[in-house]
Amino acid sequence: MKANTKPDDFGLPKEVIERSKMLHQKGPKVPLEKKRQVILGARRNTKKILSPWTIGLGAVAALLLGIIFLQGIQNQASTSPAHTYASMDQEDWIIDNYASPFDKDAYLYDINPKEVEEINWSWASNMAMQEEEIDLLIEKWSLEMTENEFYNLYNL
């Protein structure tokens, strides 16, 4: 399904918009049929690389790395409890974990601390929380709107 709306021209001349669209709609430089050899070769190459020996060695290596990693976490936990999520500032934590470097500044300036406090942080700090849910929340805070205003604005 395609959108049926007239795009905004941002006050730019028609020629500029047309050239921009042309650049976004150009065909491939190399015919796509030629790319097929590389694409179809991927599976053959993978098959060759993944012999039982490779898989076995990989599993052993992964196990060793896992043990080292877990030991590292245990050591860190016992020597520097200040790095746990619970002790971090909640706003910093969410920004550090979910915002891109560009976004961080914007969020730091836009977030309304009062609304941030209202969030259920034990839920938000669950790593299983979806990135888009975090984005939506941040979007809402950054607009400093009530939930109803936010939902009305975007016809949710």
């Binding site: 959108a3 888009e132 939506l136 979007e139």
Partner: peptide, 22 residues
């Protein structure tokens, strides 16, 4: 540039239409 509807973008990105509009 792709002229996709929000519904399509939502399917491809697994995000809500509202979030995409924002």
């Amino acid at each position: 540039y792709g002229n996709y509807s929000y519904a399509d973008i939502a399917r491809f990105t697994e995000r809500s239409v509202g979030g995409l509009k924002a």
